[in-house]
């Protein structure tokens, strides 16, 4: 990337705190705390156990729900994508549930599931599950028939064809689904934490609102943003590492 583009990008990032500073300095948005105030509050939060417990709780919830979603959605998606019988058996039911916004499940799951923790995890799971499932199905269906044929003519049985051809060839699509899924997992987690209460960054941000602590609300937002970006990056890195063959350029 040339230096001019880099400069423009840095400018883009800097514009956010600058606009924020201007808005708070001239009172454009009533109640918006000044950046300095938020930095002070952030430093203070870093010394509080509650902040760290919330951060760690939220991170664990997202990662655990995401991993469970991937572990179920990827094999399920591959099977649905490759076997018509399996698709007919499961896909219509899943398609019926998919349009329901995960947040709509919150009251029901709080009532039905034995712990609020499970309810939050389930909502988070749903956010990651469907994007990963749909992308995996698409990836598995998109495998060109010649690759399976080539594998069979080299002596691969149907399991080996699945393992060495269908799965790797669907991987780029699976990773695209995982990136979207990770984003939606955070969205759903925060919403669920705000409603279900207890712990977590969603709850921390919401309780800052109810106690009128404006700077803490911004601290919550920034922390959620940083963790969201970091986890997307993690998924991207895993993706690049696993499908490095797709990025190699011709010699």
């Amino acid at each position: 990337m040339d230096s001019r583009r880099r400069l423009v990008r840095v400018g883009s990032i800097l514009s956010v705190p600058i606009l924020w500073f201007v808005a708070s300095r001239f009172g454009l948005l009533a109640g918006l705390p000044a950046p300095v105030e938020v930095v002070d509050t952030y430093v203070a939060e870093l010394y509080r156990d509650d902040f760290w417990i919330s951060t760690i709780r939220s991170t664990i919830r997202v990662l655990a729900s995401f991993v469970i979603a991937a572990v179920i959605a990827i094999p399920l998606g591959l099977l649905i994508g490759r076997y018509t019988v399996f698709a007919d058996l499961t896909f219509p039911a899943l398609e019926m549930l998919r349009p329901i916004p995960p947040i709509a499940w919150i009251p029901f799951t709080i009532l039905v599931l034995p712990a609020a923790e499970l309810s939050i995890m389930f909502i988070t799971f749903l956010g990651a599950f469907f994007p990963i499932l749909l992308n995996t199905i698409q990836g598995a269906r998109g495998v060109e028939v010649e690759y399976s044929r080539a594998a069979q003519s080299l002596g691969a049985d149907s399991y080996q064809t699945f393992r060495h051809v269908i799965y790797p060839s669907a991987l780029p699509a699976i990773h695209a689904g995982m990136i979207v899924g990770m984003g939606l997992a955070w969205v759903n987690l925060i919403a669920a934490e705000m409603v279900a209460g207890g712990t977590g960054l969603g709850f921390l941000t919401w309780s800052a609102y109810t106690s009128g602590s404006y700077p803490t609300i911004i601290v919550g937002i920034i922390t959620i943003g940083i963790l969201g970006a970091a986890s997307s990056m993690l998924v991207r890195m895993i993706g690049h590492w696993q499908v490095d063959w797709a990025t190699e350029q011709p010699a």
Binding site: E146, S153, L154, G155, S169, W245
Partner: peptide, 16 residues
Amino acid sequence: PKRGVVFQENRLFPWK
């Protein structure tokens, strides 16, 4: 595997 096939467009597995 006794009947090997070479396709018109190469079908090497791009991920291997």
